[in-house]
Amino acid sequence: MAAGGDHGSPDSYRSPLASRYASPEMCFVFSDRYKFRTWRQLWLWLAEAEQTLGLPITDEQIQEMKSNLENIDFKMAAEEEKRLRHDVMAHVHTFGHCCPKAAGIIHLGATSCYVGDNTDLIILRNALDLLLPKLARVISRLADFAKERASLPTLGFTHFQPAQLTTVGKRCCLWIQDLCMDLQNLKRVRDDLRFRGVKGTTGTQASFLQLFEGDDHKVEQLDKMVTEKAGFKRAFIITGQTYTRKVDIEVLSVLASLGASVHKICTDIRLLANLKEMEEPFEKQQIGSSAMPYKRNPMRSERCCSLARHLMTLVMDPLQTASVQWFERTLDDSANRRICLAEAFLTADTILNTLQNISEGLVVYPKVIERRIRQELPFMATENIIMAMVKAGGSRQDCHEKIRVLSQQAASVVKQEGGDNDLIERIQVDAYFSPIHSQLDHLLDPSSFTGRASQQVQRFLEEEVYPLLKPYESVMKVKAELCL
């Protein structure tokens, strides 16, 4: 049975990233139509530049190519590739079939990587351009969430054990800070992308030097003109047959890092959902379990974690691919890159769409948070109580021993009897502590235990987050809708 299948058929496997999760716009960027249309555009740009620099290419040939950029006979191309065992030459023939007058000058002087690699770089750039505003929107939604809850005390956790208090907004800023680093890295790697350009079979530009009869300047002009037509500021000066596969490492490393950030955020949300302090959106008709109707599973956060793990592992592909590119190139890269580049971007696209949807509907339960604080705060307040007693004339050592005994009794009630923490009640009825009984409410005010959390939130948002989001103001209103 021949390899390949009808990918629109229910009898043929289709990647869930495309069929179930990723956005239509990201799927289109990695589609065959987008790819092969870009090949034709690159052939047109090459012909236009070659004509401008004096090669015998007519206006009629150029116009014929322009008129057929979208006229792609995919069936013919597939048949040609089956016959020739070469995808680029299959599309040269297919393009030439609908451009008979231009057929002889299509791909003039070029090698397969002229269309293959340059198209990949265009796709990487455009895919990054799709991700950047999506990530900015996630940051914006979380920034709104953090600002609104900047002063809401909550129990902090280290080692997932109760620690000092923080605020809900401050905790959210930990998430935002990681995503801001990801946004900066995505922008950097996007701006650092260079075009492969017009380089020939081993990167020496020998074929173009021959076409222009040894004119170095025209060869350099050709490279520059096509690079500018493709919208790049610069091209690699040095290439082998391909652009260095280190570029793929750079791009997928940034995406993998984004995956790590999203995994951490969504894990926190899942843990908070278990504590009943916070939940992701839950639709009115949504079913959490087929057997347990009360369940409210954090399905979206779980999906993000599941896909983020996949995204983090994909960076190993370009690392290994770059390491086995012998001399000017081997074909070890080809099949692998067809999979890992598309999957990385479709996965990143999915987790950003999902995280935006989550961040637009996060639900906080202040009463649950308050109750958990009441359970733990008495123990945390013991040092403040000791200091207040010393100020009232008591002995630190005597007070410490009193607190120690009462704390152990209260802990026994919590752990052995399943009761509430009654340390404060014990202190309130103990005559030894009568000098500070009137101060206990103040000493137990949760806001006095959150330090500068709310001020940190305000400063972080104003100095770091809002300036970073400013270039994306025009796209901030787009909502994230999930079908599944």
Results as ranks from 00 to 15, higher is better:
H217L: 10
F212V: 10
E464I: 08
L406D: 06
S289D: 01
L42E: 04
V262K: 02
D191P: 01
A146V: 07
P435A: 10
L355G: 04
S257V: 07
P378E: 04
A256M: 10
G54Y: 02
L443P: 01
L128C: 12
I265H: 08
L179P: 03
Q455P: 10
S23H: 10
V457P: 04
C180T: 11
C483L: 11
F30T: 07
L355A: 09
K367W: 06
A103L: 11
Q205L: 06
F236W: 14
A47L: 04
T347D: 10
H263F: 00
A18R: 08
A206D: 02
Y34S: 13
N118R: 00
E328I: 04
P56G: 11
Q325N: 15
V92L: 07
E213Y: 07
N274T: 12
L108D: 03
F236M: 10
D420Y: 05
T239D: 00
H91W: 06
A146T: 06
Q397R: 06
E220A: 13
Q356G: 12
R196E: 12
D117E: 05
F74R: 13
L142T: 09
S454M: 10
S306T: 01
M316Q: 13
F160K: 06
D332A: 00
F327I: 07
Y243E: 07
R337S: 01
M89T: 02
K134E: 12
S301R: 00
A260S: 12
N384M: 13
Q325P: 02
R85G: 01
M89D: 00
T52E: 10
Y243M: 09
S438I: 14
K134L: 13
Q320G: 11
V88A: 10
F160I: 05
A411E: 07
F345K: 02
G361A: 15
Q184C: 10
Y21I: 00
M89G: 05
D182W: 03
G394E: 11
A206C: 12
E279S: 06
S290Q: 01
K402V: 06
I269M: 07
E80S: 14
M65T: 07
H97F: 15
L406K: 11
D398N: 12
C266W: 03
S395A: 09
H86T: 01
I123R: 05
T450W: 04
S12K: 14
A90M: 02
A163E: 04
A230S: 08
P435I: 07
Y432P: 05
P467S: 11
P378D: 03
G418D: 02
T202L: 07
V88P: 05
E343Q: 12
K82E: 14
R303C: 05
I139L: 14
D32P: 15
Q164W: 00
V219M: 14
K170W: 02
P378R: 02
H437Y: 09
V219C: 07
W326A: 05
G214E: 12
T58I: 09
F236E: 05
I106Y: 03
R309S: 07
T154V: 09
L108S: 15
I62C: 10
Q241M: 04
H86M: 01
S448F: 12
D333V: 02
L346M: 15
T313P: 09
H91C: 10
A18P: 15
G116P: 00
G240R: 00
F460E: 05
R329I: 01
G5S: 12
I139R: 02
Q409C: 09
V251R: 06
S253V: 11
T202S: 14
L121T: 10
I287M: 08
F232L: 13
Y466S: 13
F28G: 07
K233T: 10
S12F: 13
A291P: 04
G200I: 00
V115T: 13
R20S: 00
V138I: 14
E213A: 14
P10F: 15
A143T: 10
Q161H: 03
A47Y: 00
